[in-house]
Design a protein around this nucleic acid. Structure first.
Length: 298
DNA sequence: CGGATTTGACCAGCGC
DNA sequence: GCGCTGGTCAAATCCG
């Protein structure tokens, strides 16, 4: 029951992972005895101040408010992505993506968080689901610019799920922080309705003292047995992400309503993102770990 | 004393 | 089949 991220966790194991001298800790959700949710916490090998946390499973109980707040950014981004999909919205409150990853880069400690298999989406996605195809998020009080990198799959005939790739950028206009709150969520969907979502999220409600104001979300659906990017190697994966980040400054943002100044904000945010070595190393570490999992059958 | 953490053992999956 | 690795179990230990 350490590291308060809104839920109660009990440590049940620790292992030294290959290639990383830092031990990986295993936690179980203790909010409900029958709750299957687990999380893994590991320090980034490149930067010991970076924590990579992986969540797996679905809470079978209501989440505490603090956890809700924390998870809201993830589901908000996820919902945006989801809302970008086709018209069938009645069951969209459940994101097809199940693994999401938050990198919370605080001033002293950075934490990367991976939510696997839809642990937060049930109670939260409904709450933050945007019924309309809007790319500006107000639910999180962060204006959101959506960069739609939609790449429809011509070979797929399925219409049951969203079939697109997109990138969402969300920037907080809220008061505070010299620390730039930004939010990038990139979703990727391959053929079989498999859905991957990368993002950087701002974190306003800080239930966790070690959680900073920056976050990254990787969202990936494990409810479909196929691992994401199973054909991609790590370098491809990482360059893909870097590409997204670096190009986001030059991509024409799909600002639906407004905000000329947002463009500048995007540029500034992008600059901050790309020039932040901690973020890059966290991103690389988490992605490496993530891809490794995916490749090994996750 | 009860609950949380630690830590070595055990097990399953995977690659060779 | 064997060894490696990651994940989990459970007894021991710690701590409030």
């Amino acid at each position: 029951m350490q590291m308060n991220d809104g839920c109660q966790w009990r440590k049940y194991g620790q292992k030294i992972a290959k290639g990383n001298p830092c031990p990986r800790a295993y936690y179980r959700c203790t909010v409900s005895p029958s709750c299957p949710v687990r999380k893994q916490v590991q320090r980034c090998i490149d930067d010991m101040s970076i924590l990579i946390t992986t969540y797996e499973g679905t809470h079978n109980h209501p989440l505490p408010v603090s956890a809700t707040a924390m998870a809201s950014t993830t589901s908000a981004a996820a919902s945006m992505l989801q809302s970008r999909s086709t018209t069938s919205s009645s069951n969209n409150q459940f994101l097809p993506g199940g693994l999401s990853s938050n990198f919370f880069a605080g001033p002293s400690t950075t934490s990367a968080t991976l939510f696997q298999s839809s642990n937060i989406r049930q109670p939260l996605a409904q709450q933050f689901y945007f019924p309309n195809n809007t790319s500006i998020s107000t639910t999180t009080s962060h204006p959101t610019v959506t960069l739609d990198l939609t790449v429809p799959n011509p070979s797929s005939s399925s219409h049951l799920g969203p079939r697109y790739s997109s990138t969402c950028l969300s920037f907080s206009s809220s008061s505070s922080s010299s620390a730039l709150p930004w939010n990038i969520a990139t979703s990727y969907n391959n053929n079989n309705g498999y859905f991957t979502n990368y993002g950087i999220m701002s974190q306003q409600n800080k239930p966790n003292p070690i959680v900073g104001s920056h976050g990254l979300v990787i969202n990936n659906d494990r409810s479909h047995s196929k691992p994401p990017f199973q054909e991609a190697n790590n370098s491809l994966y990482q360059s893909y992400l870097k590409n997204i980040i670096s190009t986001s400054s030059t991509t024409t943002a799909t600002t639906h309503n407004h905000q000329q100044s947002l463009t500048e904000t995007i540029a500034a945010a992008t600059k901050a993102i790309t020039s932040n070595p901690k973020f890059q190393s966290a991103l690389a570490a988490a992605l490496t770990s993530f891809v490794g999992k995916g490749e090994s059958g996750l």
